[in-house]
Structure formats: structure tokens, C-alpha cells
Amino acid sequence: MPASTGDPADPTGAVASPTSPPASPAESLRLIDAQRKQAARAFFGTPVPILALWGVAWTLGFGAYYVTAADGHHLPAWVAGVVLALLGAAATAASVVQFVRQRRGLRGPSPSVAARYFWSWPIATLAMAVFDLGLDRQGLPGSVQSLLWSASFLFVAGLLYLAGGVLFGDTVMFALGAWTVVVAGASTFAGVPGNFAVLSLAGGGGLLLAAAVLRPRFRPARGA
């Protein structure tokens, strides 16, 4: 070992390292930090693209509903339905792909928690749809149906974001959930088509804002 012993007679008073590392300590610390960030990104992924995609889907989808309902039927309402369905399908597909890729080759308590959280989404959403259908069957007026369906789905999403914030100790996610349930609840007071404007701007906007706030935290490590 070519360990240079600290020279007590060193006139500068600098302490020579007894075991000079090949890389400087600063460099080693940088390496540790970069590797840690890279691993965290690979294992836990980033919620930013998924939040942004859902934000775009809600904003444009409900925006389309608002436009078709508000502006004297220049556009048929089904166009809005197609816009929301397509964007929602794209966001769902992206969520599933990310989940599957992240889970690959991992086992233990945390991946199990993540899996249960993931499955909560389709379970809760489908149950909500059944609930809404059941009410529809009792003969709800069209305007109430529209208020119910749009608000209930956003409400479920908000509750799940709240749960995600609790599970993963994420303040931004929790705040997004709190905001989303409030927006969903308030949207029914706006009536049709005002509710669509509320869901588009406040609901979708909340998601986009959360994505923007979280972005710096999940930026890839420099040089990696």
C-alpha cells in the first residue's frame, strides 16, 4: 500500500491523506450521488410524465366538452367524448407501461405496496362507473348525469392521489389529491356546462401544476 504518512514537519500544515484514494473524495461523493439518483430513477421512476399526460387529458377532454356544450352546437358532443376517450386511453396505456417496466425484477414489501396502489385505480374507477350507472338507471335528468359522471371520476382520482401522498410520503401528491377532491365537489355547483370549465382548468390544471412542481426533483443525474 503506497500510503503516504502525514508529515509532521510539513511547513504548510496540510494533513496528507494516509490512504490517498485514486479518485478525490469530492469525486467519489459525486459518483455516489449520481449513482444514487440513477438507481432511484430506475427503481422508482418519475411520476412527472404520467401526471402531465393525465393533466393534458383532463384539460383538453373537458375543455372539448365545455366548447361543444357552450358554443351553440357547432361541434357535436360526441367529438368531445372521442377526445377525452382517446387522451384517457393514451394516459392509461402510459401508466400501465410504466408500472410494468418498473416492477420488473423487484420483489419485497415496497413493490407489493406499489402494486396494490396501482390496482386501486382500475378497481375504484370501475366501481365508480357501476355506481353512476346504477343512479342513471333510476332516471336522472341529462344535466345531472353529466355533473355526476365527470365529478365522480375526478373525485375518485383525487382520493387516490391523497392515498398516494400518504403511502409514499409525498406532499405534492397529497396536495394534488386535496385540491382535486375540492374541485370535483365544487364543480357540481357550477352546473352544466360550467362544470366542464372547472374540471378542465382547475382539475387538469392541478395535475399540470403538480407535474411542473415535481419536475426538478426527478431530473436525471448530470453526466449520467
Binding site: R36, A40, L106, G108, P109, P111
Partner: peptide, 8 residues
């Protein structure tokens, strides 16, 4: 970076 008990 993995939590205690998790394996890769």
C-alpha cells in the same frame, strides 16, 4: 436505494 426488505 431500495427500502429494507426489498430485493432486485
Amino acid at each position: 436505494t431500495l427500502n429494507a426488505g426489498d430485493r432486485v
